[in-house]
Measured scan of single mutants.
Amino acid sequence: WVPTKREEKYGVAFYNYDARGADELSLQIGDTVHILETYEGWYRGYTLRKKSKKGIFPASYIHLKE
């Protein structure tokens, strides 16, 4: 896992994603996520609506905010 280059990196989910394991994070369309790390097509972070739950999710489900 590699920390993100920018201190504040955010994105928005444009697909729903159902977590398949305890380390994964479920997403709903429109969720804003804070991205902490990246690795081979995956991000690690949390949604702003539930900051206490961190997990991994596919990068392809996220539109990055500039």
Results as ranks from 00 to 15, higher is better:
27 L>G: 02
47 T>I: 15
60 S>Y: 07
30 G>T: 00
61 Y>W: 03
51 K>T: 13
25 L>P: 00
29 I>F: 05
4 T>R: 05
26 S>P: 03
3 P>E: 10
44 R>Y: 15
55 G>A: 02
1 W>I: 07
51 K>D: 10
41 G>A: 07
57 F>G: 02
55 G>L: 02
54 K>R: 12
14 F>R: 14
25 L>T: 03
50 K>N: 15
20 R>Y: 05
13 A>Y: 02
32 T>M: 14
53 K>R: 10
7 E>V: 10
59 A>G: 05
58 P>L: 08
9 K>E: 09
64 L>E: 02
3 P>T: 08
36 L>C: 14
21 G>T: 14
12 V>C: 11
24 E>W: 04
8 E>Q: 11
33 V>A: 00
62 I>M: 01
51 K>E: 10
11 G>E: 04
53 K>E: 11
7 E>K: 10
2 V>R: 14
6 R>I: 12
56 I>A: 09
32 T>F: 14
19 A>L: 03
39 Y>L: 11
18 D>N: 12
42 W>N: 00
57 F>M: 04
50 K>G: 09
25 L>H: 01
63 H>S: 09
11 G>K: 03
55 G>H: 06
3 P>R: 03
22 A>P: 15
29 I>V: 12
41 G>F: 04
39 Y>N: 13
31 D>F: 12
31 D>L: 04
38 T>E: 14
16 N>A: 13
35 I>M: 09
65 K>N: 10
32 T>W: 15
17 Y>K: 00
62 I>Y: 02
26 S>T: 11
38 T>Q: 12
15 Y>V: 15
53 K>H: 12
3 P>C: 10
32 T>D: 06
43 Y>P: 00
48 L>W: 08
43 Y>K: 00
59 A>L: 03
61 Y>H: 15
26 S>V: 03
48 L>M: 12
7 E>L: 09
62 I>P: 00
66 E>P: 13
50 K>C: 15
50 K>W: 11
33 V>H: 00
44 R>P: 00
45 G>Q: 05
35 I>C: 05
6 R>N: 12
19 A>Y: 00
45 G>T: 01
11 G>A: 01
49 R>T: 13
46 Y>L: 02
4 T>L: 10
39 Y>A: 10
2 V>H: 13
49 R>C: 14
46 Y>D: 01
5 K>Y: 09
43 Y>C: 06
6 R>F: 11
55 G>K: 04
45 G>L: 04
20 R>H: 08
64 L>T: 03
46 Y>E: 03
21 G>S: 14
36 L>T: 08
56 I>G: 02
40 E>W: 08
61 Y>M: 13
52 S>T: 11
14 F>K: 15
39 Y>Q: 10
22 A>L: 10
31 D>R: 03
34 H>K: 12
2 V>N: 10
36 L>I: 11
65 K>E: 11
20 R>T: 09
59 A>V: 08
34 H>F: 15
40 E>T: 06
24 E>F: 05
58 P>E: 00
13 A>W: 05
50 K>M: 13
21 G>Y: 08
40 E>A: 12
10 Y>V: 08
45 G>C: 07
39 Y>D: 04
50 K>Y: 13
50 K>E: 15
18 D>H: 13
13 A>M: 03
34 H>G: 05
17 Y>V: 04
38 T>I: 13
34 H>V: 15
61 Y>C: 15
36 L>P: 01
41 G>T: 05
55 G>Q: 04
36 L>D: 04
11 G>V: 06
59 A>K: 13
8 E>I: 12
33 V>R: 02
7 E>G: 15
45 G>V: 04
32 T>V: 15
17 Y>D: 01
51 K>L: 08
7 E>I: 10
11 G>Y: 04
12 V>A: 02
64 L>M: 06
46 Y>I: 04
3 P>Y: 06
32 T>G: 06
39 Y>I: 09
52 S>P: 06
4 T>V: 14
28 Q>G: 04
20 R>W: 05
20 R>V: 11
52 S>R: 09
8 E>D: 10
60 S>M: 14
10 Y>P: 02
33 V>D: 00
16 N>G: 07
43 Y>F: 10
33 V>W: 03
8 E>G: 11
51 K>P: 15
42 W>S: 00
59 A>Y: 03
11 G>H: 03
19 A>Q: 02
30 G>C: 08
49 R>P: 12
51 K>S: 10
37 E>L: 06
34 H>N: 02
35 I>G: 01
15 Y>D: 15
41 G>M: 04
42 W>M: 01
32 T>Q: 11
50 K>P: 15
16 N>P: 12
53 K>Q: 13
34 H>I: 15
42 W>C: 06
39 Y>M: 14
3 P>W: 06
28 Q>C: 12
22 A>F: 10
12 V>Q: 05
52 S>M: 10
39 Y>W: 12
60 S>Q: 13
22 A>E: 13
60 S>T: 08
19 A>G: 06
37 E>W: 07
19 A>T: 02
58 P>C: 07
30 G>R: 02
11 G>W: 05
34 H>D: 00
22 A>I: 11
44 R>W: 15
47 T>E: 07
27 L>W: 03
31 D>I: 06
49 R>E: 13
16 N>L: 05
35 I>F: 04
16 N>Y: 06
1 W>Y: 07
54 K>Q: 11
4 T>H: 10
39 Y>F: 12
48 L>I: 11
42 W>K: 01
28 Q>M: 12
47 T>L: 15
24 E>R: 02
47 T>K: 15
29 I>E: 07
38 T>S: 14
65 K>V: 15
26 S>F: 04
27 L>R: 00
57 F>E: 00
6 R>T: 13
38 T>H: 10
62 I>F: 01
17 Y>C: 06
37 E>R: 03
65 K>G: 08
20 R>D: 05
44 R>Q: 05
25 L>K: 00
30 G>A: 03
50 K>R: 13
57 F>S: 00
51 K>N: 10
40 E>K: 12
7 E>H: 14
51 K>G: 10
38 T>N: 04
9 K>L: 14
6 R>S: 12
46 Y>T: 03
11 G>F: 03
9 K>P: 03
1 W>H: 08
28 Q>N: 08
49 R>I: 05
36 L>M: 10
37 E>K: 02
65 K>A: 11
60 S>P: 05
64 L>P: 04
43 Y>Q: 00
10 Y>C: 13
9 K>T: 11
19 A>D: 00
24 E>H: 06
54 K>F: 12
58 P>S: 03
42 W>P: 01
49 R>L: 08
41 G>W: 03
54 K>S: 09
58 P>T: 02
12 V>R: 04
52 S>A: 09
18 D>W: 09
28 Q>F: 08
1 W>P: 07
30 G>S: 02
66 E>L: 10
59 A>T: 06
3 P>A: 07
45 G>P: 01
2 V>E: 09
37 E>I: 11
21 G>P: 03
39 Y>K: 15
15 Y>H: 14
13 A>R: 02
56 I>E: 00
20 R>M: 11
66 E>A: 13
42 W>A: 01
37 E>A: 11
33 V>T: 00
17 Y>H: 02
21 G>R: 08
7 E>D: 11
30 G>V: 04
35 I>E: 02
12 V>I: 11
42 W>T: 00
14 F>E: 08
54 K>A: 07
55 G>D: 03
3 P>G: 07
49 R>Y: 12
8 E>Y: 12
22 A>C: 09
24 E>C: 07
48 L>C: 15
59 A>S: 13
21 G>L: 06
34 H>R: 15
30 G>N: 01
53 K>F: 08
46 Y>H: 10
60 S>G: 09
33 V>Y: 01
38 T>L: 08
58 P>W: 05
49 R>K: 14
46 Y>V: 05
28 Q>A: 10
5 K>F: 09
43 Y>L: 03
43 Y>N: 01
25 L>R: 00
28 Q>W: 07
31 D>N: 03
1 W>C: 11
16 N>M: 06
34 H>A: 13
30 G>M: 07
23 D>S: 08
64 L>A: 02
48 L>A: 07
48 L>E: 12
37 E>Y: 09
53 K>Y: 06
16 N>V: 07
66 E>I: 13
27 L>K: 02
25 L>W: 05
22 A>N: 11
63 H>C: 14
29 I>C: 09
23 D>H: 11
45 G>D: 01
55 G>V: 02
47 T>R: 15
27 L>S: 03
16 N>S: 11
11 G>N: 01
44 R>G: 06
48 L>P: 03
20 R>C: 09
50 K>H: 14
61 Y>A: 14
15 Y>N: 14
24 E>N: 02
52 S>V: 07
57 F>I: 01
4 T>I: 11
63 H>N: 09
57 F>T: 01
5 K>L: 11
22 A>D: 13
65 K>P: 07
5 K>N: 14
18 D>M: 11
5 K>P: 10
50 K>I: 10
15 Y>I: 15
49 R>Q: 14
25 L>D: 03
37 E>F: 08
62 I>E: 01
35 I>A: 01
52 S>I: 08
56 I>F: 12
62 I>V: 08
50 K>A: 15
57 F>D: 02
34 H>C: 15
37 E>S: 08
36 L>H: 05
61 Y>N: 07
12 V>W: 07
48 L>Y: 09
21 G>N: 15
40 E>D: 14
25 L>Y: 03
60 S>C: 14
40 E>P: 11
44 R>T: 03
22 A>M: 08
12 V>D: 01
4 T>M: 11
15 Y>G: 14
33 V>P: 00
1 W>L: 08
53 K>I: 11
